[in-house]
Amino acid sequence: MLDLATVTLASLFAGFVDAIVGGGGLILIPALFSVFPTAPPATLLGTNKGAAVWGTAWSTVQFARRVTLPWSALAPAAVAALAGSLAGAWTVTLVSPGGLRKALPFILLAVLAYTLARKDMGRVHAPHLGPRATATAASGIGVLIGFYDGFFGPGTGSFFVFLFVRLLGFDFLHASASAKLLNSATNFAALVLFALKGHVWWHAALVMAVANVAGSLLGTRLALKHGAGFVRGVFIAVVGALILKTGYDAFVRP
């Protein structure tokens, strides 16, 4: 019971962070591996998806009620993200992600440095592409980051947010809201694959899902209340934490 309570609390906090800017896996996945060190990694990753997909989906609904989103662009992008995630998950069965694992901290560092250097980036919502170009670009982002999520995963939500801000001219609030839809698609694709392989502890995942949704509700309300500047600040903090975590995993941890 104590083990389940610990990961449920982690799921609550993960849902909170994930709703604002992504990065909930930074909290929940290490908690699962710490509490259940002898469990198969695929089962822990599948259980994480079994909890996280509900919080992300709930956050998408909440954002959609309050933020105007370009659904004509995001719908095909979500399908592209789902397809990319499935392709990435299939590829990881053939190719080791070891090289990407070592490159990831440097990629995240570049994202952080760029965001800090461009102090006004993402503060104003100013999409600069036409409807068709927006749909094409969003679908490209969806399939690229969706593939990454299926192949490796850490920081998926943050990459979605950054690219929506940088390439499409969204502010951080609209980018975060859009990222939730695409991340829901990639989470769902991964969950289906894990479930078909029997790698989900449903008894734990469902309890954690309730906590994840509760955290998601709190995080979404804060993001909507405080706007793009607040989301930008959380984005910087989460990317900084991801740099430390992925750097440790790649170069320090045996």
Rank of each mutant, 00 (worst) to 15 (best):
L109E: 02
L45D: 03
Q62E: 13
V21E: 02
P97K: 07
N48S: 13
G98A: 05
V53K: 04
L26W: 00
G55F: 02
L69M: 13
A89Q: 13
T136C: 14
A81S: 15
K119Q: 15
T56M: 03
G88A: 06
R66P: 07
R118M: 09
G25R: 01
L45I: 11
G55P: 05
A78E: 02
T93H: 10
A80L: 15
R123A: 10
A19V: 06
P70E: 14
L94H: 09
G50F: 08
R123H: 02
L109A: 09
P76V: 12
V67R: 10
V7C: 01
T91G: 02
A110R: 12
F33R: 06
P30R: 09
W58H: 13
V21W: 00
T68C: 11
T134W: 05
A133F: 08
T56P: 01
G122T: 14
L82W: 14
G98S: 05
F36V: 08
A135N: 09
M121C: 06
P97L: 03
G99H: 04
F106H: 14
G84K: 07
A87G: 09
S139F: 07
A133P: 05
L108M: 11
T38S: 14
A42S: 10
A57K: 10
A10G: 05
F63P: 05
L45C: 07
V53N: 07
V111K: 00
G24T: 04
A87H: 01
A81T: 06
A87M: 09
V95E: 04
L129R: 15
A103D: 06
G50V: 02
A133V: 07
R123S: 10
I20H: 01
A103T: 15
R101A: 01
K102M: 01
L82M: 14
A126I: 11
A80R: 10
V35G: 04
A87W: 00
L116V: 11
P30C: 03
V35F: 03
V53W: 08
A89I: 01
L69W: 03
R65H: 06
T38F: 08
R66G: 09
A14C: 01
S11N: 07
V124T: 12
V95P: 04
T93K: 13
L112T: 08
S139N: 07
L94V: 03
G130L: 11
A64Q: 11
A39L: 14
G22Y: 00
G84Y: 03
A73M: 09
P37M: 14
F63M: 10
V79M: 10
V95L: 13
I107L: 12
A73K: 06
A83C: 12
F106P: 10
H125M: 09
M121T: 15
N48T: 00
A57W: 02
G98E: 09
T47Q: 06
A52G: 08
Y114D: 15
T47H: 00
A31S: 10
A81N: 11
A103V: 10
L104P: 00
P127T: 14
A137R: 13
A52N: 07
A57S: 06
F106W: 12
S34E: 14
